[in-house]
Computed example of a mutant assay.
Amino acid sequence: MELQSRTAVLTVRLNKPDLAALDALAEKHGVSRADLARAVLLRSVDVFQAEPRETEAILSLTQQVHGLGSRLINHQIQNRTVAARAIAERKTMGHLS
């Protein structure tokens, strides 16, 4: 996607507590007030473009969840295999009596 220069200006009025909250959040994430406000606005209208750091975090979390799911499925398969063997052994023992 081609980056376009930002030439349009949007002026927004906030009350002091809202501005303080915006500034605190911007400081927490290490971005400027304008960058934070832009990101929030663009995300709210589905024009979100993930930053590389966010993309990496999303990919890492997705891989972790996939790994957990795979291990859970393998564990369930093992449990069912053990249960099926136990049932088969009980049936075999029942026929031998």
Rank of each mutant, 00 (worst) to 15 (best):
L3E: 10
Q4L: 06
S5K: 03
S5D: 04
R6P: 01
T7Q: 09
T7I: 02
A8W: 03
A8E: 13
T11W: 13
T11Y: 11
R13H: 10
L14T: 00
N15H: 02
K16D: 11
P17G: 05
D18V: 01
L19A: 12
L19G: 01
A20D: 15
A20L: 13
A20T: 14
A21R: 15
A24S: 13
L25S: 03
A26E: 08
K28W: 01
K28A: 12
H29E: 11
H29K: 09
G30M: 01
G30V: 04
V31P: 02
A34D: 11
A34E: 15
L36C: 07
A39K: 15
A39C: 08
V40Q: 13
L41Y: 09
L41Q: 03
L41V: 14
R43C: 10
S44W: 04
S44G: 15
V47Y: 12
F48R: 14
A50W: 07
E51M: 04
E51C: 00
P52W: 00
R53C: 04
T55Q: 13
T55N: 02
E56F: 10
I58C: 01
L59C: 04
L61Q: 15
L61M: 12
T62Y: 05
T62K: 11
Q64C: 00
H66R: 14
H66P: 00
H66N: 09
L68Y: 03
G69L: 08
I73T: 15
I73M: 13
N74L: 08
N74C: 03
H75N: 15
Q76L: 15
Q76A: 15
I77E: 15
Q78P: 01
R80I: 12
V82K: 09
V82F: 07
V82M: 07
V82Y: 09
A83G: 07
A83K: 05
A83F: 10
A84Q: 06
R85I: 08
R85G: 05
A86N: 12
A86F: 02
A86W: 03
E89Q: 14
E89F: 02
R90K: 11
K91T: 06
T92N: 07
M93L: 14
M93H: 10
G94C: 01
G94M: 07
H95V: 04
L96G: 04
L96Y: 06
S97R: 12
